[in-house]
Structure formats: structure tokens, C-alpha cells
Design a binder for these strands. Structure first.
Lengths: 187, 187
DNA sequence: CGGGCCATTGACTTAGGTCAATCTGCGTGG
DNA sequence: CCACGCAGATTGACCTAAGTCAATGGCCCG
């Protein structure tokens, strides 16, 4: 309902990869499963809303159209995960950062992926530390910091404090993200 | 039904990332969606079995337990995609190759992820070119080749032709894959 | 027997990681 | 109200895993 949380996978030697962010309105866990096989961390203070398994199952039995809604949700997550695989596997550090900013801009403006422009106020709140961003993008915190500085130097972003960025031209940002103009953004 | 196909995401500049492999028994496309937003390529000759949308929907209406079966399938794909994100983001080239071999071993032995050992005959058929493997693991074909040579040199694998590997010790392979012994393998 | 197509191997380059030294707010207690 | 301390951020110097470019090898098919 409020706040931001992260989902991650951790290796026994300590390496970890953030697998997704949970924004207000997102689901944690999946219908019919007792556990999520991933680590969940609160990034900010979080308020969430729980469902009881049995009650939820009863609801599901009564409202069959809910099934397809849930299927939608899971499929969107799947597409987002696959999109992120492209980012992790093939994008440069700078493209990763820009894609991340684009992703945040969309999530914060509550638009769906398909409606592209415009993001009017074009203010992005990072909410996370450099280390958490690094963990999401498979970089190091130093690289994140360097790229953010470099983006500011190039005028792609205008920092307003450590956690807030102003975006002069969203078009420039998209380009620097290596987005191909049609459907490249994470839902 | 037969053969192997790949799902990938391609950037406009030509970079591409394989997002998953389709083995016999897997689904292509998702119920209720007309298209998959990814590229599908046949790796070997493929024989597949199609469903008509309307007929499938009617079937779904009649057999509600099919809903939860489909949900299972999509959720397994989601977990696999997220697991692969860890591989893409945080594993070394050698670990990637080994994880890939483990993945293939499981897929080819038709076991579920959760049953770990043993893979009795421990023969792995690659079926793909080095370039396709590179595309799956976010490496270059040269790096794939070098790592396969190095694994053979170290006795982790015993090559039998270009497309076939014998695995003397599956335990060693798992270790070289950086798998943590509980649930690290891709479904 | 010849000609592609993969694959292998080598030499060199580079993006990003690592290690280490400041810097910058900002919340806290005196 | 202010100075102190500390967690997070920045920046620099150096290192390395993997990418790039290029030459060679070997296998399978006509």
C-alpha cells in the first residue's frame, strides 16, 4: 500500500541479485503457493495488505474472472523479468542506469508501459541507496555513482539532492537507455 | 512435441539476449494473449501442437482446474526467469556455462528441479552452436569455447564430439556452477 | 577432394570491478 | 544551536575478466 520493497536472490557466497521491486499495488507471493523462493527486503517503511489463503481461495471460486486477472498480473511480471534479462545480459552500465530511471519514471507516474510519453513533471525519486541500485542492475555502487555523475555532466539528468533527479528531456533519457521506441520498457 | 526452440529479445542495434529455451512439453505463448513480445527461433527441426483460441477458452470454461494448472506453468516460468537473472547478473563465465549444463541435464532427464541427484547416464547433448549458447548466457562465442575447453582440461567434462558431453561427476559440475545445494537450479 | 561452417586458439583492448582516500550531508547529543 | 560522527556518496588509481579482432583448424556434405 505504501513504501518500496525489493525481491532478491542471494548466493551462498554472498553475491546477490535483485530480481524486482515491489511498488504500491504490486503482489507479493502468488496464489496457490505458500512461499516465494526469494528474499524480500523493505527499502522504505512499508505498509502492506494481506489475504488469508482460504478466504482468497473461496473468493477465487466464486469469482472466476479473478483468475484471468491474476494470470494477467503474473504474465506481466514474467514479461518484465524477461525484459530485465536483456538489460542484465546486454546493456552497458550507462544504458542500465538510464533504463532504470525510465522504469522508475513509469512506476512513479502510474502509467502502463504501453502509453509512452509524456512524463510531465519529470521528477524521479530514487528512494534507494547506490548500493541497492547496483544490486538491481548488477553493477557495483561505484559504477552507479560514476554513471550518475556522468549523466549529470552530460545534462541528461539534473540532480536535486542525492535522491532526486530532474529530467530535462525524457526523449534523451530513453535514447541513452538504448530503448528502441517500441515496447522496450519494463512494465 | 519434438525439437528445441529459443525465445529471445532483440535490440534495434542487433544485440540480442535469449530469454529461454522451449523444450518438448513447454508452452509457447500464454492463454488470453494473442502474441508473445519476443522472437522465437527453431534451433533444431521442430514439431509443435497448436490450440485454437476459442476452443481452448471453451475448454477452460468447462475445466476450471485447468486454470490453476496454467497458473503453475506461468509461475514456474517466472521463477526460472528470475533464477536466470541471478546467472546473468552475478555469475562468472565458467559458472554460467556450468549452470547451463546443469540446466540441460535436468531438462533432458525430464526431472523436476526439486529432485536433485542423480542424473544417471550423465550425457549432455548441447544441440546448439557456441553462438547460440553465448546468446543464452550473455557471453561471446569465443568465451563459451574457451570455457568449454577449460572445463574439459580440468576434467569437469569429457567431450565426445562437438555437441555431446559426458559428465564424470555431477557433484563437481554443480559446484562449479556456483549452485548452493538447495534449489538453485533453473526449472 | 574441395569448400563452407563451426570451433578453437592467440594477442590485444577495454568496461567495469576493486581498493582506497576523501567528501557531504544530516541526525544527535551536549 | 552547533559541532561531532557516521553512513552514504564521490572520485581516483589500478587490475582483471571478458570482449574484440584475427589466424588456423577440423569436420561434414556435396
Amino acid at each position: 500500500m505504501h513504501g518500496l520493497a525489493s525481491l532478491s536472490r542471494v548466493m551462498e557466497d554472498g553475491r546477490s541479485q535483485m530480481i524486482g521491486l515491489l511498488h504500491p499495488g504490486d503482489f507479493l507471493g502468488h496464489p496457490g503457493r505458500q512461499t516465494t523462493p526469494f528474499m524480500v527486503d523493505a527499502i522504505t517503511d512499508v505498509e502492506l495488505c494481506g489475504f488469508q489463503f482460504k478466504a482468497f481461495d473461496r473468493l477465487l471460486a466464486k469469482a472466476p474472472q479473478l483468475h484471468s486477472r491474476l494470470m494477467e498480473v503474473v504474465q506481466d511480471e514474467l514479461d518484465a523479468a524477461r525484459e530485465w534479462m536483456l538489460l542484465l545480459g546486454r546493456k552497458s552500465a550507462r544504458e542500465k542506469i538510464c533504463s532504470f530511471l525510465v522504469y522508475l519514471a513509469y512506476r512513479q507516474s502510474k502509467l502502463r508501459t504501453t502509453d509512452r510519453f509524456p512524463l510531465s513533471p519529470s521528477i524521479i525519486y530514487l528512494q534507494m541507496t547506490r548500493e541497492q541500485i547496483a544490486d538491481f542492475l548488477a553493477l557495483t555502487l561505484e559504477t552507479v555513482s560514476r554513471q550518475l555523475s556522468s549523466l549529470a555532466r552530460d545534462g541528461v539528468t539534473a540532480p536535486a539532492g542525492r535522491q532526486t533527479l530532474h529530467i530535462p528531456s525524457f526523449r534523451n533519457l530513453l535514447e541513452a537507455a538504448g530503448e528502441d521506441g517500441d515496447g522496450g520498457v519494463i512494465a
